[in-house]
Design a protein around this nucleic acid. Structure first.
Lengths: 326, 326
DNA sequence: TTGAAAGCGCTACCAG
DNA sequence: CTGGTAGCGCTTTCAA
């Protein structure tokens, strides 16, 4: 930077302005500095800029696993809005291990990121305090309800699952099955599912808990329905906490010659792009994975004054998408 | 840092050592400094550390789209090895737009990342030069063949697709269809597919090009096979450049009552976890998406002396996985 | 519109 | 094993 300042006959302060606030520099200086910079092949050191300017232009996001379609959709949304505004995305995965979360957050805070996007609401008191203490904007996602650490965008997992249960009940099903992961969000969905069933005066659902979202969810779903049906042959409908599991169920039914939805109705959750293409087309609960990401980014950039200020809490809702499978 | 140095009665240099090279600090000092740090709730500023130490502990990766299962697998592998070694991952997407690539790379170089992982080999001369000039380790992935900018891990798309063609030919198919994206890797696969067919003295394949990998590939695959079959009813086998497209083909056949593989054989590419679960189970070409990521990370950390040094070029190969669909 | 200079918080080198 | 100190490359007042 010093070199280019000397060559262009200006001070390094001016060079800095050329890159950061070109509007305050005279057109002539602007051009000459840019020319020299290009000649030197100069690339501004953003690390130094971050330190001096006390802003990193980096937003960090933490998801359980990036290989899960739903979270990669959210990350895609986040990444889109961030990059449109000159921000970068630092990505961390917890692989559903709570201890990883604290470690990741500490690292990211140490990196002085300009914002933090988390999956789920942080329960750990100490961690919440540390996050708050850092003063950086945080948005928690994919949940609603209890008090967030800072900002929140998502939907009610309970309500969404209850709506699914009600759909099944409305169709006359009396004996319901539930196949879901062990993570917090799946548990919330189980709660909602149970409540709706109880409210309708029906018998408790038959529950199968499986490992949390993974690339092999399809396989897991197939195994789960096999086990469930073996133990409870009376089940007439199965609700799955994600579409990949539901797809596994559909496939297993096809293999066993179980007609869907006549013998067994099946519902998914998320409304992934494949849901509509399956045969039979999957009835599912639509939630806005991608929009969660874009809104999270907007909330953070809103706080920084880069975009219009957003409310601190956003309920994106859900809707039951009725197709052929239930 | 100054505060905690004063409180602990040591110099800031010692405080720095406590966090970076604890092994050279006496146990007593170590403990007292750590205690004070904890009391103050001190989080080391990694940005300052990066600037002073001339290393960022960040590796950047660029993929076309993160929502594609294959790339998210690679990113997962990368992320795993990186985080095991105290490195963070900065993620960028090009959405298949070449101009985005240069912009992203410039930003990442400006960030002085410790390594760069790219999808595909960089063709732009000027860009290659800029990357090389930065001196940071770069690994290009998902291709093989032409000379990489620096390091390379992948497989031959041509050879892999040729193997698929040979498999189909061996099964007696004479009229082959190809459904693939418009990106470079799909084009390479088409080349290989064509060569093998030509070598066998068969007629040119019937080709359908579709938009590059997207969450809606399944839908795209269904549409493509419908169009292809309408125009060329004689096709007895279809090779798809990814499993999601193949899944769409399978589903469309099911919808139309076309028996697979008897009336139409179908092959995929990638061997995603779902491939084995489909009905009929998908015959596909297995490539190591996850391993590409782990090896890329190892190559970079090998260069930095963090891990054992790796060769600059790694061919992960491929294999035809014969299941039911072809 | 531009320049001078004071740091940003930390690392690494050199002594001791 | 520990301390002193010179930067790392840039941003940002404050003045001119």
């Amino acid at each position: 930077m010093e070199d280019i300042a000397r060559e262009a006959g200006v001070s390094i302060a001016t060079v800095s302005r050329v890159f950061n606030q070109p509007e305050v520099v005279s057109p002539a200086t602007l051009e000459s500095v840019r020319k020299v910079a290009a000649k030197f092949g100069y690339t501004p050191n953003l690390t130094a800029g971050s330190l001096a300017g006390n802003r990193s232009k980096i937003v960090a996001a933490i998801v359980p696993v990036i290989t899960s379609s739903i979270f990669s959709e959210t990350i895609d949304g986040l990444s889109t809005v961030l990059s449109e505004n000159g921000y970068q995305l630092l990505l961390g995965q917890t692989w559903y291990r709570e201890d990883r979360l604290a470690a990741l957050i500490d690292t990211f805070l140490g990196r002085r990121v300009d914002g933090l996007v988390l999956t789920g609401i942080t329960r750990d008191k100490a961690l919440r305090k540390r996050i708050r203490g850092s003063g950086i904007p945080v948005v928690e996602t994919w949940e609603l309800g209890r008090s967030p650490t800072d900002m929140l965008v998502g939907f009610s997992n309970q309500d969404a699952a209850a709506a699914a249960a009600r759909h099944l009940i409305d169709r006359g099903h009396k004996s319901l099955g539930f196949i879901g992961g062990m993570d917090i969000r799946s548990t919330e969905r189980l709660d909602g599912f149970r409540s709706a069933i109880e409210a309708a005066g029906l018998r408790e659902p038959r529950v199968a808990r499986v490992p949390s979202p993974s690339p092999s969810s399809v396989l897991v779903g197939a195994e789960a329905i096999r086990a469930l049906l073996a133990q409870f042959p009376d089940i007439s409908a199965a609700f799955c906490t994600n579409d990949m599991i539901a797809m596994g169920v559909l496939l297993e039914c096809q293999r066993q010659g179980i007609p869907v939805p006549h013998k067994l109705a099946v519902m998914g959750f998320s409304d992934l792009p494949i849901a509509a293409s399956l045969v039979p087309a999957l009835t599912t609960v639509q939630v806005s994975a991608h929009a969660i990401g874009t809104h999270a980014a907007q909330m953070i950039l809103g706080r920084k004054g880069i975009l219009e200020r957003q409310p601190n809490r956003l309920d994106l809702g859900y809707s039951v998408v009725v197709r052929e499978s239930a």
